Computed example of a mutant assay.
Amino acid sequence: MKNHRFLPITILLTLVLIFFTNINVGALNPEVSSNIENNTNHNILVDLNDLKMFLIDKDTNEVIKSYPIAGGKPSTPSPIGTWTIIGKEADWGKGFGSRWMALNVPWGKYGIHGTNKPLTIGGAESLGCIRMFNKDVEDLYKRVRVGTTVVIYGGPYGLYSNHFRNLIPGDRGADVWEVQRRLRDKGYYLGKLDGVYGDGMKAQVIRFRKDNKLTLTHNIDKELYEKLEMNAFE
């Protein structure tokens, strides 16, 4: 699977949609944009490995257009998963370029937006949002609507990764969400699956470690990942 970038985009889209259907933890919010002038028949695929975005026709799975992007830094990764655009705004704020499209990620404020730092496009440079050139985000903004599905995959801790982050209390992300789910499935974490490593999760991590005779620490490391049967791709 390491050579996934050579797969036809239609096959790749099908694979990631099947995988990420299981971690679509957000709920679709009511439409908040009152001036939608666009086509309703698109999906968006964000490839954090190649740092490209693909606009895809839902009926044919054909790529309509591709755009270069910037993704999240390794310390602040972009949210892996299947999300929904829940809001659209022009001129959202200084530094966010000329357009903003909000995603329904439960552990923070993430979206697709422009940038006043165009040299960052093509790198892992953001705090987790998907950055685009302003001319590109303006083009995308006209083509998609509130309710459009956005699949984000790849990156240093994504589907094709060969390692996971060491997590500490306060961390957020799809990896935290997956640890919560695994703990819940084993009868430990009973809180909300929100991708936030909070106090309730800390207590269950310690309980799980004690019960399994692991090192007593709040950190989520290789030892805990292995006991949870979270195996990285080789």
Score class of each variant (00 low, 15 high):
residue 208 F to S: 00
residue 222 K to T: 12
residue 173 G to V: 00
residue 154 G to L: 05
residue 115 T to G: 02
residue 13 L to C: 04
residue 209 R to V: 01
residue 233 F to W: 09
residue 218 H to S: 10
residue 67 Y to C: 10
residue 83 W to T: 03
residue 198 G to I: 01
residue 170 G to D: 03
residue 21 T to V: 05
residue 36 I to D: 11
residue 165 R to Q: 09
residue 48 L to T: 01
residue 81 G to T: 10
residue 157 Y to M: 01
residue 220 I to E: 01
residue 55 L to W: 13
residue 224 L to S: 00
residue 143 R to I: 05
residue 104 N to W: 08
residue 142 K to F: 08
residue 89 E to Y: 14
residue 195 G to S: 03
residue 161 S to H: 02
residue 231 N to C: 04
residue 20 F to Q: 14
residue 109 K to Q: 12
residue 121 I to W: 12
residue 119 L to T: 14
residue 159 L to I: 08
residue 184 R to I: 04
residue 174 A to E: 05
residue 224 L to F: 00
residue 112 I to F: 08
residue 188 Y to C: 01
residue 47 D to L: 04
residue 159 L to T: 03
residue 50 D to Q: 15
residue 61 N to V: 08
residue 138 E to F: 08
residue 86 I to S: 11
residue 98 S to M: 08
residue 12 L to M: 09
residue 10 T to W: 07
residue 175 D to S: 06
residue 166 N to H: 11
residue 167 L to E: 01
residue 117 K to F: 07
residue 74 P to Y: 08
residue 211 D to R: 00
residue 98 S to Q: 09
residue 28 L to G: 09
residue 30 P to R: 14
residue 68 P to S: 15
residue 200 G to W: 00
residue 51 L to N: 14
residue 183 L to I: 00
residue 99 R to N: 05
residue 221 D to S: 01
residue 91 D to P: 05
residue 138 E to Y: 09
residue 160 Y to N: 14
residue 155 G to F: 03
residue 43 N to D: 10
residue 170 G to M: 04
residue 67 Y to F: 15
residue 38 N to D: 08
residue 127 L to V: 11
residue 54 F to M: 07
residue 68 P to L: 12
residue 81 G to C: 03
residue 153 Y to L: 03
residue 192 K to L: 13
residue 127 L to T: 12
residue 16 V to L: 12
residue 183 L to M: 01
residue 91 D to V: 13
residue 21 T to N: 14
residue 84 T to R: 14
residue 156 P to E: 11
residue 41 N to E: 08
residue 142 K to P: 03
residue 81 G to F: 02
residue 21 T to K: 14
residue 54 F to G: 05
residue 28 L to K: 15
residue 80 I to R: 07
residue 91 D to R: 15
residue 115 T to K: 06
residue 135 K to A: 14
residue 159 L to R: 07
residue 99 R to G: 02
residue 127 L to R: 14
residue 76 T to P: 04
residue 142 K to E: 14
residue 120 T to H: 10
residue 35 N to Y: 15
residue 89 E to D: 09
residue 98 S to I: 08
residue 146 V to Q: 09
residue 32 V to G: 13
residue 55 L to R: 12
residue 53 M to L: 15
residue 12 L to Y: 13
residue 77 P to A: 05
residue 221 D to M: 00
residue 57 D to V: 04
residue 119 L to V: 13
residue 104 N to T: 07
residue 185 D to N: 11
residue 156 P to A: 13
residue 91 D to T: 12
residue 64 I to T: 11
residue 146 V to P: 01
residue 14 T to V: 12
residue 39 N to P: 03
residue 84 T to Q: 13
residue 177 W to V: 06
residue 172 R to E: 04
residue 95 G to P: 07
residue 185 D to T: 00
residue 83 W to D: 02
residue 135 K to H: 11
residue 104 N to C: 03
residue 36 I to A: 09
residue 147 G to S: 04
residue 166 N to A: 07
residue 4 H to S: 09
residue 232 A to M: 05
residue 71 G to A: 03
residue 198 G to Y: 04
residue 155 G to E: 04
residue 25 V to P: 02
residue 45 L to A: 06
residue 2 K to S: 13
residue 171 D to L: 05
residue 83 W to K: 01
residue 213 K to D: 00
residue 69 I to N: 13
residue 151 V to Y: 01
residue 151 V to C: 02
residue 86 I to W: 12
residue 136 D to P: 04
residue 39 N to C: 09
residue 53 M to P: 06
residue 123 G to S: 15
residue 92 W to M: 09
residue 26 G to H: 09
residue 78 S to E: 10
residue 180 Q to K: 02
residue 45 L to Y: 07
residue 215 T to M: 04
